[in-house]
Write a protein that binds this DNA or RNA. Structure first.
Lengths: 330, 330
DNA sequence: GTGAAAGCGCTAACAC
DNA sequence: GTGTTAGCGCTTTCAC
């Protein structure tokens, strides 16, 4: 009567609504199928989007995600590291609050904890690090506008510093991507993406359509947008290099009685992680922050060795009934 | 030689960077000191803020937080419930995707899982539920403006439906809070808060300053704000009933060449969970979403019985050395 | 295939 | 106090 026992066990299991205990499994396998994340502040648009990216791939693999906030303070980051290690997470994604040498992280790595860093490197920590792909994401965004047929695309970007620098930059970028992009501030990187998209289409860039806002405020952006929209011929689309630029630009668009997307298209590289798009023929969004999170998670899982895949079902035994362990919640 | 053994154990423990294994502890105590959260989408401003509130109190108690996204779909909510139960979380905070009878949640509760619901009740589930305190939060916000000395405070709110309803509502709210507020849509609840604040100060409300936008769009709000700002005398402060209203209002303010807070004060009940404040003498923010998360977490922890407090330190024994179990990561 | 036994790192209960 | 023991629910190994 071999099959009979099996059925009896199965019957009891389903009747009791049995759910396997991953905690117990983790004790013996040494893997919890849970990763830990130390974010600065979940409620900030940046981290919210990054976390979503992480959770996309983590949940996709059937793993869990333990999240903590550091509020960008070292104390809380140390406490979070401790909490997560005690919880035996299989890996750690950290958005470090400081680039200085961090003993708590170094020690975790030394102890064999797989780790990926977000947005910042930490001195002396040789682990995978991901940061926003400003150039590529901007290039993708502007490419969408060009593919939709736009030929006069304005860019509203901070681009602090003097006129000459902009001229030099445009000259340097005329035929190939300028060097040392990683060292530039974000708005310059995003301008580089804008230029690259045009180059890929074999299009000349009209310098008049490159609006250096010179100041990181919505009001300054508003003025820049006003200048852009009075050019002749008027740009048919705008690319805003960040969320604040976009707010100011929208104000101008409204004030002029224009409507997006009927009168002009607009794409914004924004902190909410929507390439707030807009315009006919433009159907996708880039989500650079979310992609950043996904990249970090993928790197981490690769290092953890997710190749092993999902664990197999647990093997039920008659003794589990005798010992009354077929229950999920105690 | 009793003390000697203890020291030897302690020495080995610190040398190896020993960290207790909460997973093993959880196996025997039956409590993991981790709660599970099922959010709709972490990256939305609403959930991001709510989650931060939850994490505030959860981390404050030294617990962990396992987060999942349901994307407001039943399938994913069911899967998330399963994942979290398998991980033996001590409690569940769910933002249910559907008010319809949900067997997976009902079953979890039946199995003894402590649960708190966010923003929506589920039919047949008798568990604590928290929702945004629209009336109270708006009242607080407007009170701040009144306390700062403002006597002409405009409100920009959707308030869909006809003129008569607004008149009736104002009449009904003249001397006491109108009844059945819970059944009203959010913008009406926020108007009620606005009125309550005025009542508490013994101030008459000028109906001219109540702008019913009639349409949930930034453009409609922009027009309403234009009307508000041309009233004579001009309002010295504005209360925007939601984030979109605020975007439209800001556009008008910019277009008129006004500046916040030098020319007028403004508070916005916004989705980013900042009562975006603004103006001299106004120094605090209300954070209704974050407070919602905190409330949910506190209710849940009370139900879990966090009164028991943090567990004591683990007791180290010589056998742990013999068996080589004094290590944190394997 | 099916059953039994050992043991993951800890706690609780009981010895001394 | 300090030391030992059993056992939480599972996986692994080995026996049948």
């Amino acid at each position: 009567m071999p099959g009979e026992t099996k059925e009896r066990v199965l019957a009891v299991a389903t009747k009791l609504g049995y759910q396997p205990n991953k905690i117990a499994r983790g004790l013996i396998t040494g893997r919890t199928r849970t990763i830990g994340v130390i974010a600065g502040d979940i409620s900030s648009p940046f981290y919210a989007a990054v976390l979503r990216g992480i959770s996309d791939v983590v949940e996709g693999h059937g793993l869990g995600m333990l999240i903590t906030n550091s509020d960008e303070t070292l104390d809380r980051e140390v406490a979070a590291t401790k909490l997560l290690r005690e919880n035996q997470v299989d890996g750690l994604i950290v958005s470090p609050c400081d680039v200085a040498d961090s003993p708590h992280l170094r020690e975790a790595v030394k102890a064999g904890m797989p780790m990926a860093l977000i947005d910042r490197k930490v001195r002396g920590l040789l682990v995978d690090t991901v940061a926003v792909e400003n150039v590529q994401s901007s290039r993708d965004a502007v490419r969408r506008l060009l593919m939709a047929g736009h030929r006069r695309v304005g860019i509203i970007a901070e681009l602090a510093t003097d006129e000459t620098r902009l001229k030099d930059f445009l000259a340097a970028a005329k035929n190939q991507p300028p060097e040392g992009l990683q060292l530039l501030s974000t708005s310059w990187q995003r301008l580089a993406g804008y230029l690259e998209a045009h180059r890929a289409f074999g299009l000349e860039v009209d310098p008049n359509l490159i609006l250096a806002v010179n100041g990181h405020s919505a009001l300054a952006a508003q003025n820049a947008a006003l200048v852009a929209l009075t050019k002749n011929p008027r740009p048919t689309a705008l690319f805003c290099a960040d969320g604040l630029m976009s707010v100011g630009t929208m104000a101008t668009i409204s004030a002029k009685g224009l409507q997006v997307p009927s009168d002009l298209s607009m794409i914004c590289f924004d902190d909410l992680d929507w390439m707030t798009f807009v315009g006919p023929g433009i159907d996708a969004i880039a989500q650079p922050r979310r992609r950043l999170g996904r990249a970090a998670a993928r790197l981490l899982l690769a290092r953890i060795g997710e190749a092993q895949g999902a664990p197999r079902d647990i093997r039920l035994s008659p003794r589990m009934i005798e010992r009354g362990s077929l229950r999920s919640i105690r």
